[in-house]
Design a protein around this nucleic acid. Sequence first.
RNA 1: GGGCGGGUAGCUCAGUUGGGAGAGCGUCGGCCUUACAAGCCGAGGGUCACAGGUUCAAGCCCUGUUCCGCCUACCA
Length: 884
Amino acid sequence: MDQPDKGYEPQNVEKRWYAFWEEHQLFAANESDSRPGYSIVIPPPNVTGVLHMGHALNVTLQDILCRYHRLKGHNVLWMPGTDHAGIATQNVVEKKLASEGRSRQQLGRENFIDAVWAWRKESGSAIIHQLKRLGASCDWARERFTMDEGLSLSVRKVFVELYHQGLIYQGDYIINWCHRCHTALSDLEVEHEEISGNLYQIRYPFPDNSGGIVIATTRPETLFGDTAVAVHPEDERYQNLPSDTVLLPLTDRRIPIIRDAFVGMSFGTGALKVTPAHDPNDFEIGNRHNLPSLKVIDDHGLMTDGAGIFEGMDRFKCREAVVQKLQEQGLLVGIEPYPHNVGHCYRCKTVVEPNLSRQWFVKAKPLAEKAIAAVQNGQTRIIPEVWAANYYEWLNNVRDWCISRQIWWGHQIPAWTCEACGKMTVSLMPPDTCASCGHSVLIQETDVLDTWFSSALWPFSTMGWPENSPLLKTFYPTSVLVTGFDILFFWVARMMMMGIHFMGDVPFKDVYVHALVRDEAGKKMSKSKGNVIDPLTIMDQYGTDAFRFTLAAFAAQGRDVKMSEKRVEGYRHFINKLWNASRFALMHVNLDSTTIPTGALSLPNQWILSRSESVIQSAIEALEAYHFNDAAGLLYQFVWHELCDWYLEAVKPALYGKEGDAILEQTRAVLWRVLKNTLISLHPFIPFVTEEIWHKLPGTQGSIMNARLPQDSDPGFGQFVNPESEQQMAIIINIITGVRNIRGEMNLAPSLKLNALIQTDLSVISDTIRQHGDIIIHLARLERLSVDVLGERPKSAATAIVEGAIIYVPLEGILDLTKEIQRLEKEIEKLNDELNGVSKKLNNDDFLSKAPVDIIEKVKGKHATLSDKQQHLQNNLNKIKALL
RNA sequence: GGGCGGGUAGCUCAGUUGGGAGAGCGUCGGCCUUACAAGCCGAGGGUCACAGGUUCAAGCCCUGUUCCGCCUACCA
């Protein structure tokens, strides 16, 4: 057998096994298979994206689930792909063109689209390679892209159907406009951020230039678009006005004074300027009062001719100019600093402009109702459940979804306007003639659809819809969607709406919502803050398995995960520990170790089999409940602190042949079995190192990915769970720890062999010691061990009390009496504190009469043990003091 | 403005029906014990944010206060 490296070196191991898995098509789903199906669609990363911590966590959790279900023998589909990220991708390619001194306008629409495809071919799948570095076991042969032929067909189909069902409409409304990206944005794509602006008070004089009404605004430059001034109908200050119109400053226009209950009487002067074309509220007011809408800011953020002498000026420059002009004319009544929230484009951070324009919308309410019901009636579970509240909250207040974007990269809206009659034809394929008049000159809508519109179809569009494909039959609805809460509305809610509407069934049975990864200080990682930790660097440095295990351990945390390299380092040590434990095991097991010989098992062998089986059982339960951190923690604890710390140390004499051939063979076989099952259980978390060890383990065949969880492959699994051996081992561990404690506290060299006397009146303890004392002698480094009933204490002995027994370590001539007294006093003090708490309960009549019997018994038992312990210690302390 | 989450060891965080406060890292002391110094053995460390309440019993349930964070929103 080749001797594995002394320390685990992940680099080439990872590359080698990933290539092996792909080559043997171990990630492939089978679309016509009778095994139970399990499916996940990946949240498609932006094609422009590079792997960040959020992807890493998200993908690792999915990979754990997929690998786990394969080990259960399920037919797993993990559907991968990317989305076309309309605005982001267009920005990237435009920037690239700009660096070559070109613009998309110069290229024209068709050439520009070709340029985007060329870019995608060249650098668009970087993130896919990065996902592979993580070990993601996606079915790569099925990789999808939202702009692919099939997915584009789905998009058009959905658009056409929703349009004919009256759930998509076109209309003139106030939308959020980004001047930089030059497109409309949905409400969700606007990020609100507080900025320190000013509140300007401006006087709008009456027609005779006297007095007037003072309004308050943060945006004086929009006054050119004002078509009214509004006051509250019941505001006494404005009951008897000399005129029902005012003069609009800096113009020669007169606008009406209207009365609308929207206006807050207590804010500012109680008078509001109404600009229907540039403010959502004003738009509503305008509709109520039939006011005209006047656009004074164009699509590039420049003032229109409506702004008179300010035409062509940037909107923010214009603000300053207007303020100055008003001041000159004595119409500026006041300025005060006023912090307020302003919407910014989520892609480029430009201040968005509420803008009146013609856009396409999805009528969300009817779709939302079904999406709400599906979660309420349990067709889809949201885990953890707290997120369901957010989901309901948003869907209950959902507003119509603006889906048209004035960019080129994306799914062009399948609507054509007839040149002759001006009517619209909406159809799956380009129509030859107008549906209304039969004319043949038709012009297609230039807008494209929001990228999220196509993402909303992802769970079924990737599986071949609108055809009723075998893939859909086998794998829809998907088993679970794993995602961060930041796209619960953007994506999850919309997939629910579309899935239910078009498939007649929810897109996923479970939604597992995980945390967001932040930096060590809890700040969102961002390039501008410079606090980004690159997952690829982490993987280079610590290995992918260590990184994945860290992420799994993080998964339980509520809303944030604070990433720290220290944690990853700690888990790298764990990987190394597993590696070295395996290395040790591989020195001893062989092809004959694959079955446990008949005959009585030694205590350590009974114990580790028992522990192994119950831990695996618990880890499986944890995974089924999406408690990734619990599963990871259980296995970590088992491997390090049971298998390595106790079992391997306890059976070394057996493995070195000191307990005879029978025990040697038996121990080898138990070690083989436990290691094998541990590797399989850990494989979903740390696939590379487990595969590497698997191939070195005698008696295994092929990839660990083809193995089965012991629970599913071994009908006798669970037979070794054995509380009695666990109890016996606990006794032994307690005694060894007691002796070690004395050794440590008394500063006795580990090489110094000691004698120990255990006194106990409990037969379970004395029997265990008599039968298995060799383990204690070995691990506590004893010369001699004896057992007796409680009685005289040896002279000059250090003492430790464990449950049910006293340990004496005679230290004739070595014992430092002062030190021992300190030890005992400290111990007694600790016991007293505990004892006080317990006694208080037992002296309380209410407790005795009202608490359940089993609790009372427990507390009584506790009290007995503690006072016993305390008494023994006190006796010893007294005797030692007497020696002084 | 509305909603949600959090405050537990020096740090990062677990703690699932209320019933003996945990882990990892860090700290301190001792060890090159032939799988592992990326290791082994031992130790120390907490008024569970604060104040009330319910209960025999509260980190956990209720009320209030305070601090932090997130989401959402049309008061100019």
